[in-house]
Structure formats: C-alpha cells, structure tokens
C-alpha cells in the first residue's frame, strides 16, 4: 500500500485513517496503544432504571398508536378496495413502529404482533375486506396485550392470543 506518485495509475481506492477521536473524547485514550474502555456498572444501572420507569408508562402511551391504527383501519373500511392503499400503508407504518417498541419496554408480544402485521401489509394485492379483517385481528390481540398488561412471553394468555390470531388469519385468508 503506497502513496500515489506522478505517472502512477489513478487510485481506485482511497483510505482515510483517522485518530480515534471518540476514544480520546470519552477518556480512554485514542492512541495506537490505547486500551479499550467500557461502560461503568453505575451508568448501565442508571440506564436500566430509566427503561424500567418508561416501561410503566408504555401501556398508556402505546394506546395512542393503537387508536391511530384503529382510525386508519376504519378509514380503510370506509373506502372502496381500490382506494385503500394509503390507509393500509399507514397501518403498515404504525405496525412497524409497534414492532420497534414493545420489546424494549417488556412487551415482546407487541413486537411480535406488530412485525406480523407489518409483513402482512407489504402486499400489492387489492385490499379487500378479508385483509382488513386480518389487520383488525392483529389490532385486537395487541389491545388485549396492553389491556391485560401481558408482559414478557405472556405465558398461557400469550399462547391463547397467538392461537386466536392464527385462527383469524386462517379464517380470513381463506386457508
């Protein structure tokens, strides 16, 4: 590996090797012989406590997202199938948000159902009533998770919710 000289072919790859500015800034050196640093136990505990605090409020604020999802679903119902793309996309967006939240706050079932609904909305087919029924079934189980505060894997209640969702999907997908 060399520095380019006159008459040499134009380099195809240029490299930039910068000093480790972040390490220097967070007080763990940054020079070539610097030891790696780590997060202190105290800082980790503080952050965990903040997540735990937020988890207590999560069921309250996630209801807003579920209500928004319900409103988009209603908007889709009120339109003919060929005009439902916009609200269905919005449903997908909200589902994706829900997927990204639940697990952080101790509600992994919200992440699971949110992910399932998101994947389900990634379709190009005409959005007929049966698709909206499936979306509604997802909304219903997510509401149940939050109303009953089904945290963690949810035990037998979680299993029942998954089962009822599977049955709804089969029923309305015509399987």
């Amino acid at each position: 590996m060399t520095t380019a000289k006159p008459g040499k072919p134009q380099p195809r790859v240029r490299l930039f090797r910068r000093r480790n500015r972040l390490a220097a800034k967070v007080g763990v050196g940054g020079g070539p012989a610097a030891e790696p640093g780590k997060l202190s136990e105290e800082a980790f505990e503080r952050a965990m406590k903040e997540i735990e605090k937020a988890a207590e409020d999560y069921p309250d604020w996630v209801r807003e997202s579920l209500d928004e999802l319900g409103a988009e679903l209603k908007a889709a119902w009120d339109l003919p199938p060929e005009e439902r793309v916009q609200p269905f996309r919005k449903i997908g967006r909200i589902a994706h948000e829900l997927k990204g939240q639940g697990g952080t706050f101790g509600y992994p079932l919200i992440s699971t159902f949110g992910d399932m609904l998101y994947e389900f909305t990634q379709t190009d087919v005409k959005i007929r009533d049966n698709l909206l029924e499936v979306a509604k079934a997802h909304l219903d189980v997510m509401r149940a998770v939050i109303n009953d505060r089904v945290s963690g894997k949810g035990g037998s209640i979680g299993q029942d919710l998954k089962l009822s969702l599977d049955q709804a999907i089969k029923k309305y997908s015509g399987e």
């Binding site: 930039f16 972040l22 790696p36 780590k38 990204g100």
Partner: peptide, 27 residues
C-alpha cells in the same frame, strides 16, 4: 435493531469507541 435493549445499545457504543474503522472512498 429495534426493539433495542440497553445491552444491544451499549454493544454498539462499545464498538464505536473501541473499534473504529478506516474510511474508504471508491467510485
């Protein structure tokens, strides 16, 4: 990846600080 945990967040911050990479410019 979301949903994130403190552990997953910290793992990435550790890598940012402890294992920075050279930058590459190509076409």
């Amino acid at each position: 990846g979301k949903p994130y945990t403190i552990n997953s967040l910290m793992a990435r911050i550790n890598t940012l600080v402890n294992a920075p990479r050279q930058y590459v410019l190509t076409a």
